[in-house]
Design a protein around this nucleic acid. Structure first.
Lengths: 247, 247
DNA sequence: GTCTCCTAGATTATCAACAATCCTGTTGAC
DNA sequence: GTCAACAGGATTGTTGATAATCTAGGAGAC
Protein backbone atom coordinates (compact mmCIF):
# COMPACT_ATOMS: atom_id res chain seq x y z
CA UNK A 1 0.00 0.00 0.00
CA UNK A 2 1.79 3.03 -1.20
CA UNK A 3 2.08 5.83 1.23
CA UNK A 4 2.82 8.43 -1.33
CA UNK A 5 3.60 6.90 -4.69
CA UNK A 6 7.16 8.04 -5.18
CA UNK A 7 8.42 6.28 -8.28
CA UNK A 8 11.99 7.44 -7.93
CA UNK A 9 13.69 8.92 -10.92
CA UNK A 10 12.81 6.90 -13.92
CA UNK A 11 15.61 5.90 -16.21
CA UNK A 12 16.58 8.60 -18.63
CA UNK A 13 18.63 7.38 -21.54
CA UNK A 14 19.77 10.48 -23.27
CA UNK A 15 22.75 11.82 -25.08
CA UNK A 16 25.55 12.06 -22.55
CA UNK A 17 26.59 15.49 -23.67
CA UNK A 18 25.07 17.66 -20.93
CA UNK A 19 27.71 18.58 -18.38
CA UNK A 20 26.57 20.78 -15.52
CA UNK A 21 22.89 21.52 -15.53
CA UNK A 22 21.82 18.46 -17.35
CA UNK A 23 18.15 19.09 -16.78
CA UNK A 24 15.48 16.61 -16.08
CA UNK A 25 13.57 14.86 -18.77
CA UNK A 26 10.65 13.37 -16.95
CA UNK A 27 8.06 15.26 -14.97
CA UNK A 28 9.10 13.70 -11.69
CA UNK A 29 12.75 14.56 -12.23
CA UNK A 30 11.78 18.12 -13.01
CA UNK A 31 9.83 18.24 -9.78
CA UNK A 32 12.76 16.94 -7.79
CA UNK A 33 15.17 19.31 -9.44
CA UNK A 34 13.11 22.42 -8.92
CA UNK A 35 12.51 21.42 -5.34
CA UNK A 36 16.20 21.01 -4.87
CA UNK A 37 16.87 24.36 -6.48
CA UNK A 38 14.60 26.05 -3.99
CA UNK A 39 16.32 24.21 -1.17
CA UNK A 40 19.74 25.23 -2.31
CA UNK A 41 18.65 28.82 -2.44
CA UNK A 42 19.27 29.12 -6.15
CA UNK A 43 15.81 30.60 -6.36
CA UNK A 44 15.35 33.36 -3.86
CA UNK A 45 12.19 33.74 -1.78
CA UNK A 46 9.57 35.89 -3.44
CA UNK A 47 11.31 35.43 -6.73
CA UNK A 48 8.90 35.17 -9.55
CA UNK A 49 8.87 31.85 -11.34
CA UNK A 50 8.25 32.31 -15.01
CA UNK A 51 7.04 29.24 -16.77
CA UNK A 52 9.01 29.58 -19.97
CA UNK A 53 12.23 30.23 -18.08
CA UNK A 54 11.74 27.17 -15.97
CA UNK A 55 10.84 25.18 -19.05
CA UNK A 56 14.13 26.17 -20.63
CA UNK A 57 16.10 25.54 -17.47
CA UNK A 58 14.60 22.13 -16.82
CA UNK A 59 14.48 21.13 -20.47
CA UNK A 60 10.82 20.24 -20.35
CA UNK A 61 7.73 21.70 -21.90
CA UNK A 62 5.65 24.38 -20.26
CA UNK A 63 2.91 21.89 -19.51
CA UNK A 64 5.04 19.83 -17.17
CA UNK A 65 6.40 23.00 -15.57
CA UNK A 66 2.83 23.85 -14.84
CA UNK A 67 2.08 20.56 -13.09
CA UNK A 68 5.34 20.80 -11.20
CA UNK A 69 4.34 24.22 -9.94
CA UNK A 70 0.98 22.88 -8.84
CA UNK A 71 2.68 20.15 -6.85
CA UNK A 72 5.10 22.57 -5.25
CA UNK A 73 2.21 24.84 -4.44
CA UNK A 74 0.45 22.01 -2.66
CA UNK A 75 3.72 21.34 -0.83
CA UNK A 76 3.79 24.90 0.41
CA UNK A 77 7.06 25.74 -1.28
CA UNK A 78 5.48 27.93 -3.90
CA UNK A 79 2.52 30.22 -3.84
CA UNK A 80 0.72 30.88 -7.08
CA UNK A 81 -1.94 33.49 -7.68
CA UNK A 82 -4.31 33.27 -10.62
CA UNK A 83 -3.17 35.02 -13.75
CA UNK A 84 -0.16 36.34 -11.91
CA UNK A 85 2.09 33.34 -11.80
CA UNK A 86 4.02 31.61 -9.08
CA UNK A 87 6.53 32.88 -6.56
CA UNK A 88 8.70 30.88 -4.26
CA UNK A 89 7.10 31.19 -0.92
CA UNK A 90 8.73 33.38 1.68
CA UNK A 91 8.63 31.68 5.05
CA UNK A 92 8.56 34.29 7.77
CA UNK A 93 10.11 33.73 11.15
CA UNK A 94 6.66 33.32 12.64
CA UNK A 95 5.79 30.66 10.13
CA UNK A 96 9.08 28.96 10.81
CA UNK A 97 8.15 28.76 14.46
CA UNK A 98 4.78 27.33 13.55
CA UNK A 99 6.35 24.76 11.31
CA UNK A 100 8.76 23.76 14.01
CA UNK A 101 5.98 23.41 16.51
CA UNK A 102 4.06 21.14 14.19
CA UNK A 103 7.17 19.17 13.43
CA UNK A 104 7.88 18.84 17.12
CA UNK A 105 4.63 17.12 17.95
CA UNK A 106 4.83 14.89 14.89
CA UNK A 107 8.41 13.85 15.54
CA UNK A 108 7.50 13.24 19.15
CA UNK A 109 4.86 10.88 17.83
CA UNK A 110 7.45 9.06 15.73
CA UNK A 111 9.75 8.78 18.73
CA UNK A 112 6.89 7.19 20.64
CA UNK A 113 6.17 4.78 17.83
CA UNK A 114 9.85 4.00 17.44
CA UNK A 115 10.00 3.04 21.09
CA UNK A 116 7.12 0.68 20.43
CA UNK A 117 7.99 -0.68 17.01
CA UNK A 118 11.72 -0.51 16.40
CA UNK A 119 13.53 -3.77 15.80
CA UNK A 120 16.64 -4.60 17.78
CA UNK A 121 18.67 -4.06 14.65
CA UNK A 122 17.23 -0.59 14.18
CA UNK A 123 17.93 0.35 17.77
CA UNK A 124 21.52 -0.74 17.33
CA UNK A 125 21.81 1.43 14.25
CA UNK A 126 20.31 4.40 16.08
CA UNK A 127 22.75 4.03 18.94
CA UNK A 128 25.62 3.86 16.51
CA UNK A 129 24.55 7.11 14.88
CA UNK A 130 24.41 8.75 18.28
CA UNK A 131 27.93 7.53 19.06
CA UNK A 132 29.16 9.00 15.82
CA UNK A 133 27.52 12.33 16.66
CA UNK A 134 29.30 12.33 20.01
CA UNK A 135 32.64 11.83 18.29
CA UNK A 136 31.97 14.57 15.76
CA UNK A 137 31.12 16.99 18.50
CA UNK A 138 34.30 16.15 20.41
CA UNK A 139 36.21 16.95 17.25
CA UNK A 140 34.33 20.23 16.85
CA UNK A 141 33.10 18.98 13.50
CA UNK A 142 29.84 20.89 13.34
CA UNK A 143 28.91 19.96 9.77
CA UNK A 144 29.55 16.32 10.61
CA UNK A 145 27.45 16.64 13.71
CA UNK A 146 24.67 18.26 11.78
CA UNK A 147 24.72 15.45 9.27
CA UNK A 148 24.52 12.90 12.04
CA UNK A 149 21.63 14.85 13.47
CA UNK A 150 19.72 14.45 10.23
CA UNK A 151 20.61 10.77 10.06
CA UNK A 152 19.40 10.18 13.59
CA UNK A 153 16.05 11.80 13.03
CA UNK A 154 15.65 9.89 9.80
CA UNK A 155 16.50 6.60 11.49
CA UNK A 156 13.98 7.22 14.24
CA UNK A 157 11.30 8.10 11.74
CA UNK A 158 12.04 4.98 9.74
CA UNK A 159 11.89 2.82 12.85
CA UNK A 160 8.54 4.29 13.81
CA UNK A 161 6.80 2.72 10.80
CA UNK A 162 4.38 5.61 10.58
CA UNK A 163 3.99 6.57 6.96
CA UNK A 164 1.58 9.40 7.62
CA UNK A 165 3.77 11.17 10.12
CA UNK A 166 6.85 10.55 8.02
CA UNK A 167 5.29 12.15 4.99
CA UNK A 168 4.10 15.18 6.89
CA UNK A 169 7.43 15.69 8.59
CA UNK A 170 9.17 15.53 5.25
CA UNK A 171 6.82 18.16 3.93
CA UNK A 172 7.40 20.45 6.88
CA UNK A 173 11.10 19.98 6.66
CA UNK A 174 11.15 21.01 3.04
CA UNK A 175 9.72 24.37 3.99
CA UNK A 176 12.32 25.00 6.64
CA UNK A 177 15.59 24.58 4.84
CA UNK A 178 16.47 28.23 5.05
CA UNK A 179 16.51 28.13 8.82
CA UNK A 180 17.92 24.74 9.59
CA UNK A 181 21.56 25.64 9.90
CA UNK A 182 21.05 28.51 12.23
CA UNK A 183 20.39 27.03 15.60
CA UNK A 184 23.43 24.83 15.54
CA UNK A 185 25.60 27.94 15.39
CA UNK A 186 24.33 29.31 18.69
CA UNK A 187 27.08 28.98 21.29
CA UNK A 188 26.53 26.10 23.65
CA UNK A 189 23.68 24.75 21.60
CA UNK A 190 25.44 21.68 20.16
CA UNK A 191 26.33 20.25 23.57
CA UNK A 192 22.78 20.77 24.77
CA UNK A 193 21.50 19.22 21.57
CA UNK A 194 23.61 16.12 22.06
CA UNK A 195 22.24 15.66 25.55
CA UNK A 196 18.69 15.89 24.29
CA UNK A 197 19.36 13.36 21.57
CA UNK A 198 20.94 11.03 24.06
CA UNK A 199 17.79 11.16 26.16
CA UNK A 200 15.64 10.32 23.15
CA UNK A 201 17.78 7.35 22.20
CA UNK A 202 17.89 6.10 25.76
CA UNK A 203 14.11 6.17 25.98
CA UNK A 204 13.75 4.29 22.72
CA UNK A 205 16.28 1.73 23.86
CA UNK A 206 14.31 1.28 27.07
CA UNK A 207 11.12 0.85 25.07
CA UNK A 208 9.56 3.70 26.98
CA UNK A 209 7.19 5.48 24.59
CA UNK A 210 6.15 8.22 26.99
CA UNK A 211 9.74 9.11 27.79
CA UNK A 212 10.72 8.99 24.14
CA UNK A 213 7.92 11.32 23.16
CA UNK A 214 8.66 13.72 25.99
CA UNK A 215 12.37 13.76 25.24
CA UNK A 216 11.81 14.47 21.56
CA UNK A 217 9.39 17.25 22.38
CA UNK A 218 11.86 18.77 24.77
CA UNK A 219 14.52 18.61 22.11
CA UNK A 220 12.52 20.27 19.37
CA UNK A 221 11.03 22.71 21.83
CA UNK A 222 14.53 23.90 22.56
CA UNK A 223 15.30 24.17 18.88
CA UNK A 224 12.16 26.25 18.52
CA UNK A 225 12.95 28.65 21.35
CA UNK A 226 16.51 28.97 20.13
CA UNK A 227 15.27 29.85 16.69
CA UNK A 228 12.74 32.28 18.10
CA UNK A 229 15.44 33.99 20.13
CA UNK A 230 17.82 34.39 17.23
CA UNK A 231 14.93 35.58 15.12
CA UNK A 232 13.88 38.33 17.51
CA UNK A 233 17.51 39.17 18.09
CA UNK A 234 18.05 39.62 14.40
CA UNK A 235 14.85 41.57 13.97
CA UNK A 236 15.71 43.82 16.85
CA UNK A 237 18.97 44.72 15.12
CA UNK A 238 20.51 45.25 18.54
CA UNK A 239 23.68 43.58 17.47
CA UNK A 240 23.73 40.02 16.28
CA UNK A 241 25.63 38.58 19.19
CA UNK A 242 24.26 39.94 22.45
CA UNK A 243 20.87 38.29 22.26
CA UNK A 244 22.00 34.81 21.41
CA UNK A 245 25.05 34.33 23.55
CA UNK A 246 24.68 32.06 26.45
CA UNK A 247 21.95 29.66 25.30
CA UNK B 1 -5.87 28.10 3.59
CA UNK B 2 -7.52 25.11 2.13
CA UNK B 3 -9.57 24.78 5.24
CA UNK B 4 -11.94 27.53 4.26
CA UNK B 5 -13.62 28.70 1.10
CA UNK B 6 -16.57 26.48 0.47
CA UNK B 7 -18.38 28.20 -2.35
CA UNK B 8 -21.31 25.82 -2.52
CA UNK B 9 -22.33 25.01 -6.01
CA UNK B 10 -21.89 28.28 -7.80
CA UNK B 11 -24.45 29.40 -10.28
CA UNK B 12 -24.15 27.44 -13.46
CA UNK B 13 -26.17 28.89 -16.27
CA UNK B 14 -26.34 26.06 -18.71
CA UNK B 15 -28.99 24.15 -20.47
CA UNK B 16 -31.46 23.15 -17.78
CA UNK B 17 -31.26 19.52 -18.75
CA UNK B 18 -28.90 18.38 -15.98
CA UNK B 19 -30.88 18.05 -12.79
CA UNK B 20 -28.46 16.75 -10.20
CA UNK B 21 -24.85 17.46 -11.06
CA UNK B 22 -24.61 21.01 -12.33
CA UNK B 23 -20.83 21.01 -12.72
CA UNK B 24 -18.19 23.57 -11.90
CA UNK B 25 -16.70 26.09 -14.22
CA UNK B 26 -13.37 27.23 -12.82
CA UNK B 27 -10.39 25.09 -11.91
CA UNK B 28 -10.73 25.71 -8.22
CA UNK B 29 -14.40 24.89 -8.25
CA UNK B 30 -13.64 21.67 -10.06
CA UNK B 31 -11.13 20.84 -7.36
CA UNK B 32 -13.66 21.50 -4.63
CA UNK B 33 -16.33 19.51 -6.39
CA UNK B 34 -14.22 16.46 -7.02
CA UNK B 35 -13.00 16.57 -3.46
CA UNK B 36 -16.57 16.72 -2.29
CA UNK B 37 -17.53 13.84 -4.56
CA UNK B 38 -14.86 11.67 -2.98
CA UNK B 39 -16.05 12.71 0.45
CA UNK B 40 -19.64 11.86 -0.32
CA UNK B 41 -18.59 8.45 -1.51
CA UNK B 42 -19.86 9.04 -5.02
CA UNK B 43 -16.50 7.82 -6.19
CA UNK B 44 -15.63 4.51 -4.61
CA UNK B 45 -12.18 3.75 -3.23
CA UNK B 46 -9.87 2.21 -5.78
CA UNK B 47 -12.16 3.37 -8.52
CA UNK B 48 -10.26 4.43 -11.55
CA UNK B 49 -10.53 8.09 -12.44
CA UNK B 50 -10.51 8.58 -16.17
CA UNK B 51 -9.62 12.04 -17.27
CA UNK B 52 -12.10 12.42 -20.08
CA UNK B 53 -14.96 11.18 -17.93
CA UNK B 54 -14.11 13.66 -15.21
CA UNK B 55 -13.74 16.40 -17.78
CA UNK B 56 -17.26 15.70 -19.01
CA UNK B 57 -18.65 15.43 -15.51
CA UNK B 58 -17.06 18.63 -14.25
CA UNK B 59 -17.53 20.52 -17.49
CA UNK B 60 -13.90 21.51 -17.73
CA UNK B 61 -11.12 20.64 -20.09
CA UNK B 62 -8.83 17.70 -19.60
CA UNK B 63 -5.94 19.96 -18.66
CA UNK B 64 -7.64 21.30 -15.57
CA UNK B 65 -8.75 17.79 -14.65
CA UNK B 66 -5.12 16.90 -14.74
CA UNK B 67 -4.06 19.67 -12.40
CA UNK B 68 -6.97 18.86 -10.11
CA UNK B 69 -5.80 15.27 -9.94
CA UNK B 70 -2.29 16.39 -9.15
CA UNK B 71 -3.55 18.49 -6.29
CA UNK B 72 -5.70 15.70 -4.94
CA UNK B 73 -2.74 13.39 -5.22
CA UNK B 74 -0.64 15.73 -3.12
CA UNK B 75 -3.54 15.85 -0.66
CA UNK B 76 -3.46 12.09 -0.35
CA UNK B 77 -6.99 11.58 -1.59
CA UNK B 78 -5.91 10.16 -4.90
CA UNK B 79 -2.98 8.05 -5.91
CA UNK B 80 -1.76 8.33 -9.46
CA UNK B 81 0.76 6.08 -11.13
CA UNK B 82 2.56 7.16 -14.29
CA UNK B 83 0.93 6.15 -17.54
CA UNK B 84 -1.72 4.31 -15.62
CA UNK B 85 -3.93 7.07 -14.38
CA UNK B 86 -5.37 7.97 -11.02
CA UNK B 87 -7.40 5.99 -8.52
CA UNK B 88 -9.15 7.28 -5.46
CA UNK B 89 -7.03 6.21 -2.60
CA UNK B 90 -8.20 3.44 -0.38
CA UNK B 91 -7.56 4.29 3.25
CA UNK B 92 -7.08 1.13 5.24
CA UNK B 93 -8.00 0.83 8.88
CA UNK B 94 -4.34 0.95 9.80
CA UNK B 95 -3.88 4.15 7.87
CA UNK B 96 -6.95 5.57 9.51
CA UNK B 97 -5.37 4.94 12.88
CA UNK B 98 -2.18 6.61 11.74
CA UNK B 99 -4.09 9.61 10.48
CA UNK B 100 -5.94 9.89 13.75
CA UNK B 101 -2.73 9.71 15.70
CA UNK B 102 -1.21 12.50 13.67
CA UNK B 103 -4.36 14.52 13.99
CA UNK B 104 -4.37 13.97 17.72
CA UNK B 105 -0.96 15.51 18.30
CA UNK B 106 -1.70 18.39 15.94
CA UNK B 107 -5.07 19.18 17.47
CA UNK B 108 -3.48 18.95 20.88
CA UNK B 109 -1.09 21.60 19.68
CA UNK B 110 -3.96 23.81 18.59
CA UNK B 111 -5.65 23.33 21.95
CA UNK B 112 -2.45 24.49 23.61
CA UNK B 113 -2.21 27.51 21.35
CA UNK B 114 -5.86 28.29 21.87
CA UNK B 115 -5.30 28.37 25.61
CA UNK B 116 -2.53 30.86 24.97
CA UNK B 117 -3.99 32.97 22.19
CA UNK B 118 -7.77 32.86 22.28
CA UNK B 119 -9.57 36.14 22.82
CA UNK B 120 -12.21 36.45 25.51
CA UNK B 121 -14.81 36.60 22.78
CA UNK B 122 -13.58 33.37 21.24
CA UNK B 123 -13.61 31.62 24.58
CA UNK B 124 -17.19 32.71 25.10
CA UNK B 125 -18.13 31.31 21.72
CA UNK B 126 -16.39 28.04 22.48
CA UNK B 127 -18.22 27.70 25.77
CA UNK B 128 -21.49 28.37 24.03
CA UNK B 129 -20.83 25.61 21.52
CA UNK B 130 -20.11 23.22 24.36
CA UNK B 131 -23.37 24.18 26.05
CA UNK B 132 -25.24 23.47 22.86
CA UNK B 133 -23.57 20.08 22.58
CA UNK B 134 -24.67 19.27 26.11
CA UNK B 135 -28.25 20.10 25.22
CA UNK B 136 -28.16 18.04 22.06
CA UNK B 137 -26.88 15.07 23.95
CA UNK B 138 -29.61 15.39 26.56
CA UNK B 139 -32.11 15.33 23.73
CA UNK B 140 -30.46 12.25 22.23
CA UNK B 141 -29.83 14.27 19.07
CA UNK B 142 -26.72 12.51 17.85
CA UNK B 143 -26.47 14.26 14.48
CA UNK B 144 -26.82 17.58 16.24
CA UNK B 145 -24.18 16.57 18.74
CA UNK B 146 -21.87 15.50 15.96
CA UNK B 147 -22.31 18.82 14.26
CA UNK B 148 -21.53 20.65 17.47
CA UNK B 149 -18.47 18.47 17.80
CA UNK B 150 -17.19 19.64 14.44
CA UNK B 151 -17.99 23.24 15.31
CA UNK B 152 -16.13 23.01 18.58
CA UNK B 153 -12.99 21.63 17.02
CA UNK B 154 -13.16 24.25 14.30
CA UNK B 155 -13.59 27.03 16.85
CA UNK B 156 -10.61 25.83 18.85
CA UNK B 157 -8.48 25.60 15.74
CA UNK B 158 -9.50 29.10 14.72
CA UNK B 159 -8.72 30.48 18.15
CA UNK B 160 -5.28 28.88 18.08
CA UNK B 161 -4.10 31.13 15.24
CA UNK B 162 -1.85 28.44 13.90
CA UNK B 163 -2.17 28.35 10.14
CA UNK B 164 0.25 25.50 9.65
CA UNK B 165 -1.48 23.14 12.05
CA UNK B 166 -4.88 24.18 10.76
CA UNK B 167 -3.93 23.36 7.20
CA UNK B 168 -2.49 19.98 8.09
CA UNK B 169 -5.47 19.02 10.22
CA UNK B 170 -7.80 19.92 7.38
CA UNK B 171 -5.78 17.71 5.08
CA UNK B 172 -5.85 14.80 7.49
CA UNK B 173 -9.52 15.22 8.06
CA UNK B 174 -10.23 15.07 4.36
CA UNK B 175 -8.73 11.61 4.24
CA UNK B 176 -10.82 10.32 7.10
CA UNK B 177 -14.36 11.07 6.04
CA UNK B 178 -15.21 7.46 5.53
CA UNK B 179 -14.62 6.69 9.17
CA UNK B 180 -15.79 9.81 10.92
CA UNK B 181 -19.33 8.81 11.75
CA UNK B 182 -18.47 5.48 13.26
CA UNK B 183 -17.16 6.19 16.69
CA UNK B 184 -20.12 8.25 17.76
CA UNK B 185 -22.30 5.17 17.39
CA UNK B 186 -20.43 3.13 19.99
CA UNK B 187 -22.53 2.73 23.13
CA UNK B 188 -21.57 5.09 25.88
CA UNK B 189 -19.17 6.92 23.66
CA UNK B 190 -21.11 10.20 23.32
CA UNK B 191 -21.28 10.79 27.07
CA UNK B 192 -17.58 10.07 27.41
CA UNK B 193 -16.90 12.34 24.47
CA UNK B 194 -18.79 15.19 26.06
CA UNK B 195 -16.80 14.85 29.24
CA UNK B 196 -13.55 14.98 27.31
CA UNK B 197 -14.64 18.06 25.43
CA UNK B 198 -15.67 19.71 28.66
CA UNK B 199 -12.18 19.15 30.03
CA UNK B 200 -10.61 20.71 26.95
CA UNK B 201 -12.82 23.77 27.14
CA UNK B 202 -12.22 24.16 30.85
CA UNK B 203 -8.46 24.11 30.34
CA UNK B 204 -8.69 26.71 27.58
CA UNK B 205 -10.89 28.88 29.76
CA UNK B 206 -8.33 28.62 32.55
CA UNK B 207 -5.56 29.56 30.12
CA UNK B 208 -3.74 26.37 30.98
CA UNK B 209 -1.93 25.24 27.84
CA UNK B 210 -0.53 22.02 29.29
CA UNK B 211 -3.92 20.90 30.51
CA UNK B 212 -5.58 21.85 27.25
CA UNK B 213 -3.07 19.89 25.25
CA UNK B 214 -3.32 16.88 27.52
CA UNK B 215 -7.11 16.94 27.49
CA UNK B 216 -7.28 17.11 23.72
CA UNK B 217 -4.84 14.27 23.40
CA UNK B 218 -6.85 12.19 25.79
CA UNK B 219 -9.96 12.91 23.78
CA UNK B 220 -8.54 11.99 20.39
CA UNK B 221 -6.68 9.07 21.88
CA UNK B 222 -10.01 7.67 22.95
CA UNK B 223 -11.45 8.26 19.52
CA UNK B 224 -8.51 6.37 18.11
CA UNK B 225 -8.84 3.36 20.36
CA UNK B 226 -12.59 3.31 19.80
CA UNK B 227 -12.04 3.29 16.07
CA UNK B 228 -9.39 0.59 16.37
CA UNK B 229 -11.79 -1.56 18.37
CA UNK B 230 -14.68 -1.21 15.96
CA UNK B 231 -12.28 -1.79 13.11
CA UNK B 232 -11.07 -5.09 14.45
CA UNK B 233 -14.64 -5.96 15.36
CA UNK B 234 -15.77 -5.33 11.83
CA UNK B 235 -12.82 -7.14 10.37
CA UNK B 236 -13.54 -10.10 12.57
CA UNK B 237 -16.95 -10.31 10.91
CA UNK B 238 -18.57 -11.13 14.22
CA UNK B 239 -21.82 -9.61 13.07
CA UNK B 240 -22.17 -6.04 11.94
CA UNK B 241 -24.65 -5.01 14.57
CA UNK B 242 -23.51 -6.35 17.89
CA UNK B 243 -20.64 -3.97 18.24
CA UNK B 244 -22.32 -0.72 17.32
CA UNK B 245 -25.93 -1.09 18.30
CA UNK B 246 -27.48 0.77 21.11
CA UNK B 247 -25.99 4.25 21.26
C1' DG C 1 -5.75 -27.31 -23.26
C1' DT C 2 -2.43 -23.89 -22.07
C1' DC C 3 0.83 -20.65 -23.01
C1' DT C 4 3.05 -16.92 -25.66
C1' DC C 5 2.96 -13.43 -28.99
C1' DC C 6 0.67 -9.98 -31.25
C1' DT C 7 -2.80 -6.69 -32.78
C1' DA C 8 -6.51 -3.22 -31.59
C1' DG C 9 -8.65 -0.17 -28.61
C1' DA C 10 -8.36 2.89 -24.89
C1' DT C 11 -5.96 6.12 -21.98
C1' DT C 12 -2.38 8.97 -20.59
C1' DA C 13 1.57 12.23 -21.65
C1' DT C 14 3.30 15.86 -24.35
C1' DC C 15 3.35 19.51 -27.48
C1' DA C 16 2.47 23.76 -30.14
C1' DA C 17 -0.66 27.38 -31.00
C1' DC C 18 -4.28 30.59 -29.62
C1' DA C 19 -6.91 33.57 -26.38
C1' DA C 20 -7.25 36.17 -22.12
C1' DT C 21 -5.07 38.71 -18.66
C1' DC C 22 -1.78 41.44 -16.39
C1' DC C 23 2.27 44.62 -15.95
C1' DT C 24 5.20 48.55 -17.65
C1' DG C 25 6.30 52.72 -19.69
C1' DT C 26 4.53 56.54 -22.15
C1' DT C 27 1.52 60.16 -23.48
C1' DG C 28 -1.67 63.62 -22.62
C1' DA C 29 -4.73 66.53 -19.74
C1' DC C 30 -5.39 69.32 -15.80
C1' DG D 1 4.18 68.49 -11.41
C1' DT D 2 0.83 64.94 -10.76
C1' DC D 3 -2.52 61.87 -12.15
C1' DA D 4 -5.31 59.08 -15.37
C1' DA D 5 -5.92 56.73 -19.64
C1' DC D 6 -3.68 53.96 -23.09
C1' DA D 7 -0.86 51.07 -25.99
C1' DG D 8 2.78 47.51 -26.25
C1' DG D 9 4.97 43.67 -24.44
C1' DA D 10 5.09 39.85 -21.53
C1' DT D 11 2.98 36.03 -19.12
C1' DT D 12 -0.51 32.96 -17.92
C1' DG D 13 -4.77 30.08 -19.07
C1' DT D 14 -6.98 27.04 -22.39
C1' DT D 15 -7.74 24.25 -26.31
C1' DG D 16 -7.14 20.69 -29.66
C1' DA D 17 -4.26 17.58 -31.79
C1' DT D 18 -0.42 14.19 -31.75
C1' DA D 19 2.81 10.74 -29.75
C1' DA D 20 3.77 7.27 -26.23
C1' DT D 21 2.10 3.81 -23.23
C1' DC D 22 -0.82 0.48 -21.26
C1' DT D 23 -4.79 -3.11 -21.13
C1' DA D 24 -7.61 -6.50 -23.16
C1' DG D 25 -8.66 -10.03 -26.28
C1' DG D 26 -7.63 -13.36 -29.89
C1' DA D 27 -4.57 -16.20 -33.06
C1' DG D 28 -1.22 -19.54 -33.34
C1' DA D 29 2.31 -23.01 -31.54
C1' DC D 30 3.35 -26.76 -28.63
Amino acid sequence: MSGAARPPATASRRTPGSPRRPAARSADEAYQELREAIHQGELMPNERLIEVELAARLQVSRAVVRTVLVRLGQDGLVVSTPNRGAHVRLVTEEEAVEILQARAVLEALTARQAALNATAREITAIRRILDRMTQKLEQDDLPGYSEGNADLHAAIIAAARHETAARMIAGLRAQLVRFQYRTILVPGRPAQSLGEHTAVVAAITNRDPDAAEAAMRRHLGHVESTLANTATAVRRRSGPSDGIRTA
